[in-house]
């Protein structure tokens, strides 16, 4: 556990996103909670990174801060070379719209919009043209062709998550953030969604960061970062279920 004291070593050069001494505190004074305790890390481009850790360890907070959804208390965050700390709320909004893809655990879709319009939502919000060929590729890849004109309420949970993945892909974002994307799915639907995220990296050269507490899900990633109490405690490259479980056991010990 020697290496864990110095977070600096996790910095890599080919970074799609970076955190430098990121500090996030909720509340102030006696009741304050440190969710991120000077986290320094980077997310490598075109790789699939998973974040694991016990409940309350700061996984979601890290993801939200990286995605520009939550301001830091201290330190800095970058998407590519863009310093998130320097951006205004509306600049952050535009950054999320144009450069980031999201897959949340639930409520990923706007209920009044058909699948197709949910998929193109971010592009349309920015009034960007839709690349039809790319749209077709994504839709066919995710098997959503015959679901395009359905509303979310007419889709299964797995289909809904696939639509969310399609929305994340259609934008060709710098980075896709997924917070427990399989948390609400049965295992076969979950496997499907994880497969698509993997494909996004392998076939389309996307960068994916996924929070999960499921070792099986994390095993699809290229790298797993372990968080405890807002600090990075381990960084596992080329993980498999066994190595992940082993690491988790060590953390609990």
């Amino acid at each position: 556990m020697v290496a864990l004291t110095d977070s600096e070593i996790y910095l890599t050069t080919n970074a799609a996103a970076r955190a430098e001494k990121a500090l996030k505190e909720f509340g102030s004074g006696d009741t304050s909670v440190v969710a991120l305790d000077h986290v320094t890390m980077s997310v490598e481009a075109e790789r699939f990174t998973a974040i694991m850790g016990p409940s309350g360890s700061g996984k979601s907070t890290l993801l939200h801060c990286l995605a520009g959804l939550e301001p830091l208390t201290g330190g800095s965050m970058y998407i590519g070379d863009t310093d998130l700390v320097s951006l205004s709320d509306s600049e952050l909004t535009v950054l999320r719209r144009d450069r980031i893809g999201f897959v949340f655990q639930t409520f990923n879709l706007v209920p009044t919009m058909t699948a197709e319009r949910n998929i193109t939502l971010q592009l349309r919000l920015g009034r960007h043209p839709i690349d039809r060929a790319w749209f077709d590729t994504v839709v066919d890849e995710l098997g959503l062709r015959d679901r395009l004109h359905h509303r979310p309420s007419e889709l299964s949970g797995g289909q809904q998550q696939r639509v969310a993945v399609a929305r994340a892909l259609i934008n060709r974002p710098d980075i896709i953030f997924a917070d427990e994307p399989t948390g609400n799915l049965d295992s076969s639907s979950g496997q499907e969604v994880l497969g698509f995220l993997r494909q996004a990296v392998d076939n389309f050269g996307q960068t994916v960061v996924m929070v999960t507490h499921d070792p099986g899900a994390a095993a699809h990633a290229d790298r797993v970062i372990f968080l405890v109490d807002g600090r990075i405690v381990h960084d596992l490259d080329g993980p498999n279920v066994d190595s992940i479980l082993g690491q988790l056991r060590r953390l609990e010990a």
Binding site: A67, S90, T93, R97, N108, L125, R167
Partner: peptide
């Protein structure tokens, strides 16, 4: 859904 819209980049 308003939260979702804002998250994926709808401006205020």
């Amino acid at each position: 859904e308003l939260g979702l819209l804002r998250a994926v980049g709808m401006t205020r």
